[in-house]
Nucleic acid binder design. Structure first.
Length: 149
DNA sequence: GCCAACGTTGGC
DNA sequence: GCCAACGTTGGC
């Protein structure tokens, strides 16, 4: 079963909001590489939920993929922040998945600790200049991150 | 708010 | 196909 890591700004979808809601649609991804990873996800896959663009960026929970990818409806909604006019005229290229909450960590595993872990050097999250918002995590990386809890 | 790095767009 | 300009991401 593949593992993943997904970034969200807490203002968009936060870990606590997902825990409260129980499930949510992960939409608004507008990068082809990230979209391709969404399309590779299967129900039951686990992911690390990372908070970005906030005072203490880091990983703070585990979530689960509940539904495989499907066309992202926000691309077609003119009033959505994620509206893509070309999706209307040329077909909708964007994908979303449904996710659930599994476990919230007692403490956020903050970015500097992730960067300091040798086992995570290959993770795009910690690589200079990487902005990928959805990425695969190897079993070894997964264990290394959970060991930092 | 700053800025480095990246992806996309569009002129040529 | 090149590449400059632009918009976005995201840490700090």
């Amino acid at each position: 079963m593949p593992y993943w890591l997904m970034k969200s700004e807490p203002d968009e979808l936060s870990i606590s909001a997902l825990a409260r809601l129980g499930d949510a649609r992960w939409d608004g991804v507008r990068n082809y590489q990230a979209r391709n990873f969404l399309r590779a996800m299967q129900p039951g896959d686990l992911f690390l939920f990372y908070h970005s663009s906030c005072p203490r960026p880091g990983v703070a929970s585990i979530g689960k993929i509940l539904r495989a990818s499907y066309p992202d409806p926000t691309a077609l909604q003119a009033d959505s922040h994620y509206f893509d006019s070309k999706a209307l005229t040329h077909g909708n290229p964007w994908s979303a998945v449904d996710v659930g909450h599994v476990e919230t960590f007692e403490r956020v595993i903050e970015l500097p600790r992730l960067k300091a872990a040798p086992a995570l050097a290959g993770l795009p999250l910690v690589q200079r200049g990487s902005r990928l918002s959805v990425m695969p995590v190897t079993p070894a990386q997964w264990e290394a991150i959970l060991a930092l809890r």
